[in-house]
């Protein structure tokens, strides 16, 4: 649950986005710029968080009182080496923030911190990750919370989709690419698993609202409506003209679902509305048409 330091929203004077070159960081920077909020976009080109002296380099880019959004991660985290590197990156961030105190920090985590069977997931669900990716985010959350004296908001998004997604993970983005190319979409089993798919611009808007309210605490980023992968595939096919085929495969693993109780988001931001999956996919199709 988030608590707002600013009951009425107020734009931060300047926001530094660490990891602005990625899918989420890029969307956040765009959203803040749209509200004329000064944004410093840091990518690996400006600061390599694993390089020697990176904390000093990062500190030089910061001003006291900045709001800082921490997105940068080596994701997905699948090996022990990647886990260690991700934790080292947050060590660098914490060291820099100890040198130059910010006014507010927003950490973009993941719903992978929750146990697989926590349904419906809410912010009070125990964090009990079953994956290295979840363990990595949880370790970074705890490390940041332990080192910061200023308000920290931890946002835990569910699965994300949107035009700029660089990953080709199982879900709407891959389905759209396949459907647009007229290729068959192959599902695990019959695609029965239900997941909560979030449109990237909703993440950016929630980060913007969290910054404006200078919120502290934990908030999940999830729509509250879970779709089966088959439904998501059918929406993608329909959005691209309806020509592509969807094909099931013999099931290898048990069916698992994930649902969210989004009451905390409704209370934190009563006027915010999530983009329905159909609308988000349609926007991605439109934006890709614009690119091509």
């Amino acid at each position: 649950m988030l608590e707002h330091e600013n009951a009425e929203p107020r734009s931060p004077e300047r926001v530094v986005v660490i990891g602005a070159g990625g899918f989420v960081g890029g969307a956040v920077a765009l959203r803040l710029a749209a509200s004329d909020i000064p944004v410093v976009k840091l990518t690996r080109a400006e600061v390599d968080l694993l390089a020697e002296g990176a904390a000093d380099t990062l500190a030089e880019a910061l001003k006291p009182g900045d709001a800082v959004v921490v997105v940068s991660a080596l994701a997905p985290c699948k090996t022990a080496t990647q886990l260690v590197e991700n934790v080292r990156m947050i060590e660098t961030v914490a060291a820099a923030l100890a040198q130059v105190e910010p006014s507010h920090v927003v950490y973009i985590s993941s719903d992978a911190v929750y146990s697989d069977d926590a349904n419906p997931v809410n912010e009070e669900s125990p964090a009990a990750p079953s994956s290295l990716h979840g363990a990595m985010h949880l370790a970074r959350e705890v490390a940041l919370a332990a080192s910061l004296k200023v308000p920290l908001a931890i946002l835990r998004p569910s699965l994300l989709h949107g035009a700029a997604d660089p990953h080709n993970g199982y879900g709407p983005n891959r389905y759209l690419r396949l459907a647009a190319g007229g290729e068959t979409i192959t599902l695990f089993g019959e695609g029965e698993e239900k997941r909560d798919h979030v449109y990237i611009e909703d993440v950016a808007e929630l980060v913007h609202l969290t910054l404006a309210h200078r919120s502290r605490g934990v908030l999940n980023i999830a729509t509250g409506i879970s779709h089966s992968f088959r439904d998501a595939a059918e929406i993608a096919v329909a959005a691209t003209g309806g020509g592509a085929k969807i094909q099931g495969t013999p099931r290898q693993n048990p069916i698992t679902h994930r649902h969210f109780d989004v009451s905390a988001c409704l209370k934190a931001f009563p006027r915010f509305r999530y983009t329905p999956l159909e609308t988000g996919i349609a926007r991605t199709v439109e934006s890709r048409k614009g690119e091509s």
Partner: peptide
Amino acid sequence: RYRRDWVLRTLASEVFA
């Protein structure tokens, strides 16, 4: 605590959307 918010969730999905 979860069921207490039933009305809020119903309003969100059936009205505020």
